[in-house]
Design a protein around this nucleic acid. Structure first.
Lengths: 212, 212
DNA sequence: CCCACTTTCGACCAGAGTGGTCAGTTATCA
DNA sequence: TGATAACTGACCACTCTGGTCGAAAGTGGG
């Protein structure tokens, strides 16, 4: 038995697999492993109790599958693509990374939130083999913003290592504010133009602050 | 009845009230209102089931009390003190705010994490009267870093409003990195010297980047 | 059309855990 | 000492849990 069950799951149509995974990701993300309810998952996914346990032998088996899938997905559609980026300046790099992440999140946004909360969990809730793999991927995704960056146009009165850190802080802060804004404010079409202008001005500011 | 019960709670020794509140804060913060277990709370607090319900008429009554207490505490020991700050430059202001927050968190750190998670919750879990009060306090605490700031020494090629935002991003980023560092790394005595030097250098960098 | 096989369903189970009660014990202090 | 306040934990009815299983429905080859 065991893994054999998951083979039946793999045979499902992609859209159904997607639905079930997303339901499970949502519940596990919100409640954590132990408090997450399989009943809750199946109602969100719109399948039956028996259906779920036909494909997965237990709640834990499902959980492990989700971690595996998330890591594989991130590896393939996010981290893997980051490895091929060419040497460039920080702002361009940040923008490229954001674009790749955006693309990946279009496909499976729940994977990212799931891994993000998993990353903060006490280790008890994460099988140890997967934990190591996860942390190394997380590490790699952080390094991408400091490694192989062209620093030749940065101002020279502060060491480039610090400058990159500070730029990263500012861009993250800007990004977070933007997300907060989008979450609260239901945006109309005409806002895009304004947002785009904002962003252009922001990049000009960054150059004034950090470039020669 | 009702509020009368809370009077018996107020008569308890401060240390016991503190213990009970902290236990409850922890559980409600981790699990949210509906999934939080009173059994869990009493085991952490080290009191009996009957004891809890002698002082609070229900789980919801306890929850409302905690929100009230948190808001009153923040009002008195944090926001209230921020109102008396004198006009100064951003870096000094940020440092003053951090110091006041630090003092308040020494007294009741769980209050801050509780309110922070409460702030992100869907409104269903927050009684509406308290919700408004909470959001206005949160707003006020954000405003303190932009209002009545002396901007005369800022560089002049970027409008001060933007500069303040960017400085805020950088300082928050620095603070977060520091917290992450302290959480992972068990620090010895001699690290303090190094950390202090780091911080001084960081402030120099801030002045180079944002001041004239 | 049948048949063998895979997939799906949901009623059902024993057990755990829930918020809350209350008769009884202990602490307090006049 | 006695009256009252403070506290205890066994107990309650109830909900929800992860998981099972016999039956029904789908599927595709012959």
């Amino acid at each position: 038995m065991g893994v054999l069950l998951r083979q039946s799951f793999e045979k499902l149509p992609d859209s159904l697999k997607h639905t079930i995974r997303n339901a499970a990701y949502r519940v596990f993300t919100d409640e954590g492993f132990s408090k997450a309810s399989t009943n809750h998952i199946i109602t969100i996914a719109g399948i039956s109790k028996g259906g779920l346990f036909y494909h997965f032998q237990s709640k834990e088996d499902l959980y492990r599958y989700l971690i595996d899938y998330a890591l594989a997905f991130i590896e393939k559609h996010y981290i893997g693509r980051l490895r091929h980026l060419e040497r460039t300046d920080f702002i361009t790099r940040y923008r490229e990374v954001a674009a790749i992440k955006h693309e990946a999140m279009q496909k499976e946004s729940h994977v990212f939130t799931f891994l993000a909360t998993l990353h903060l969990k006490r280790p008890q809730e994460i099988p140890s083999e997967q934990s190591a793999r996860m942390h190394s991927l997380m590490q790699e995704s952080e390094d991408i913003l400091t490694k192989d960056i062209d620093t030749s146009m940065l101002r020279e009165d502060i060491q480039p290592g610090y400058l990159l850190k500070y730029m990263n802080y500012v861009m993250d802060g800007y990004k977070n504010d933007l997300q907060k804004h989008y979450r609260s404010h239901d945006f109309g079409e005409e806002d895009f133009q304004k947002d785009f202008e904002d962003y252009e001005r922001f990049l000009q500011h960054m150059k004034k602050l950090f470039y020669k």
